[in-house]
Simulated scan of single mutants.
Amino acid sequence: MDEKGGGHMSRPRFRRHFLWDTVQPRFLCLSLCYVVVVIVAVSAALFVPLMLELNHLPLSSVEAQRVAEQFELLHSRFWPVVVVVSLLLIVHGVFFSHRIAGPLYRFRRIFQSVASGDLTVRTSIRKSDYLHVEAQCLGEMVNALREKIGRIEAHHADMTPQLERLKAAAARGALREVEQETERLRATVEQLAQAMEPFQTDSQPVEPTPATLPTAAGF
């Protein structure tokens, strides 16, 4: 979809770099807390000794003036550097966290698609993103599911004409043909059961019981 106008372009671009409904906001908040802790620790190490020294000196003394000048000089140089470095760390944190939050957001969409039955989803992510190994594993999982379900669908499709031929043979009273179609149907059901064996839906696996098919004597 084409984007027109400057206002329409800035918002999608912001959304691409900052995903509110992912782990990215929490990561940035935690990183910001670390930055604040470091700033407080460094500022305390720099300013507290000077403040204590200034507190013990007479305000009119030359030594107190020297300490006060050092205090003002540190203030004038320290806080601009803190502001610039903090902004750089925030910008870097947004781009860094997006390389993790972006793939996680993509994985969540893939999980939702697979849960709804769509196994045609693409599991690729951008080259600049992290979690490429996880994306490859997710792709292998989706491909394996697609292959297994494809075999189940193929066996299920084979059963429909076999049932029709079995019904037609039973209607004609052709017992020999009924027995042949029954054997073919039994083989297809066994193949279908084998294709479904890898799927486990219960924590306590149950031994599969062979399906009971009609025989020629039952017609």
Rank of each mutant, 00 (worst) to 15 (best):
L104F: 03
H98L: 01
A168F: 08
P80Y: 02
D21E: 15
V35A: 09
D2W: 11
L88K: 01
Q180M: 10
L28E: 03
L19Q: 13
P49H: 06
L74C: 01
V94P: 04
K4V: 15
V94C: 03
F18D: 08
V142G: 07
P161V: 05
I149T: 11
S128H: 02
D118Q: 05
L19K: 13
H17R: 10
F18L: 10
Q180S: 11
L73N: 07
P25G: 04
S86I: 00
F71A: 00
P80L: 02
L166Q: 11
L74Q: 00
G102N: 09
R108G: 05
P214A: 09
F199T: 03
R146E: 10
V206M: 03
A44P: 01
V114S: 12
V35D: 12
E197G: 02
E181M: 07
L57M: 13
L52I: 12
L166K: 10
V94A: 06
E134C: 00
P214W: 04
G7P: 06
V23N: 09
A45Y: 08
C29A: 13
R15F: 09
Y34P: 00
M196Q: 15
H92V: 03
R77L: 06
V85C: 12
V40E: 06
S10H: 14
A157T: 08
R109N: 11
V94H: 03
S43Y: 06
E3H: 14
S43W: 05
V133R: 13
M51F: 11
A211L: 14
F71K: 00
M159S: 12
D21M: 07
A170N: 08
S31Y: 01
R106A: 07
S86Y: 01
R99I: 05
G139Y: 02
D21Q: 13
V81E: 04
Y105N: 13
R151N: 13
R184Q: 15
L104G: 04
A68G: 15
T22G: 08
H156I: 03
R99M: 11
V84F: 11
I100C: 02
T123V: 04
S76A: 10
Q200N: 12
L59C: 06
L28T: 02
V114Y: 07
D129G: 02
F18T: 04
I149Q: 11
P210F: 02
L28S: 02
R15G: 15
F78V: 02
V121W: 00
S97H: 07
D202E: 14
G139K: 01
A115S: 15
D158R: 13
R15N: 15
V114Q: 12
A216C: 00
L166M: 14
D202Q: 14
R15K: 12
H75G: 10
E197M: 07
E147R: 12
S203W: 12
S76T: 07
L119H: 06
S76E: 06
F14L: 15
G7W: 11
E147T: 10
D202H: 10
P12Q: 10
A174F: 07
V114E: 11
R109L: 11
F18P: 04
